[in-house]
């Protein structure tokens, strides 16, 4: 195996160490490739297909996030075929999933690629609580003719620390990987069901409090769409008081144990509204435990807060 490979991206030559993905090679050249299911700290699952691009000689498009660059490859990132598939991935997602909390980048791509989710008709009525969880694989009821089926369903609020709003879920598998194999090794959640009814679930859809969940919140840390959200952010958004422009982010070290995790305290109106850790922090790689993620609001005051309430 050669130590480095040379290929072209949009006609520009690039030389990278063998094993480098097309995505990394593009980033080195400053070529933007949109991604949704990719995260630097996790193994690529290449399922959203937003990062697809053309590789000379390949019949179908190729996912940039997982495919290693090969010697002599001719990669094209901005052809009509590429733009079409990216537009359709965004449009299809937006037609079924609530992308409202997915951040400014997704909003920009939706506009740039010209996604028009309304082309598929008005949304069908939302599913009652639990209905989507109970479907038998291979038997999908479908939406009334003339409407488009969506993931619309009530939010799952079953504990004091975070909520699961699966109508915002794009099924990127990140939370499953972060909960299980690639970070927390807790395996409280997995992908269940099939097809459009595939979803993130605990065994038999039991509440998190009856599952193996240890409330580290690492799934929240990796969720790209706001489907998993800390209780305080969820409630503030519902009340209309969530205001990112009024928030400051302060890096500090977790006071609890000797590991010394980097914490970033997101503060609005003198309240800690969310705690995160940077993906590139040596100690955490973005992951925390229940104490760091949920346990530092004691610095605000001793009075009970809305976090302490039950479901």
């Amino acid at each position: 195996m050669t130590a480095s490979v040379t290929a072209t991206v949009d006609g520009r030559p690039v030389t990278v160490p063998a094993g480098t993905t097309i995505l990394e090679a593009c980033r080195r050249l400053g070529v933007e490739v949109p991604t949704l299911c990719f995260l630097e700290t996790l193994e690529p699952v290449n399922v959203c297909r937003l990062c697809v691009l053309e590789v000379e000689g390949s019949r179908a498009l190729v996912p940039a996030c997982s495919r290693p660059l090969e010697e002599g490859m001719e990669v094209r990132t901005d052809t009509p075929r590429v733009r079409h598939s990216r537009r359709m991935v965004l449009e299809l997602l937006a037609s079924a999933v609530d992308l409202g909390a997915a951040g400014p980048e997704v909003a920009r791509w939706l506009a740039e690629y010209g996604a028009r989710p309304e082309r598929y008709g008005p949304p069908a009525p939302p599913a009652p609580a639990g209905a989507r969880d109970g479907r038998q694989a291979g038997h999908h009821p479908g939406a009334p003719t003339g409407t488009r089926e969506t993931l619309a369903q009530p939010v799952k609020v079953d504990n004091a620390l975070y909520v699961r709003d699966y109508e915002k879920c794009i099924l990127c598998y990140k939370c499953v990987e972060a909960c299980g194999e690639q970070a927390q090794a807790t395996f409280a959640i997995a992908v269940a069901g099939r097809g459009f009814d595939a979803r993130i679930a605990t065994e038999f859809d039991v509440p998190l409090t009856e599952s193996a969940c240890v409330f580290c919140g690492n799934c929240i840390g990796v969720c790209p769409t706001g489907a998993l959200m800390v209780r305080r952010e969820y409630e503030m958004r519902r009340e209309g008081t969530w205001a990112p422009e009024r928030q400051s982010a302060t890096a500090t070290i977790c006071p609890y144990c000797g590991v010394g995790c980097t914490l970033v305290l997101h503060v609005q109106d003198n309240r800690i509204v969310k705690v995160t850790s940077p993906l590139d922090a040596d100690v955490t790689r973005g992951h925390l435990c229940i104490k760091g993620r949920f346990g530092v609001t004691f610095v605000e005051d001793a009075a009970p807060t809305s976090d302490r309430g039950g479901a």
Partner: peptide, 18 residues
Amino acid sequence: FRDESCGQCVPCRIGTVR
């Protein structure tokens, strides 16, 4: 196709429904 899609990738999971 809608019923048999594995549900992994967006073009097929949502495309077969549409």
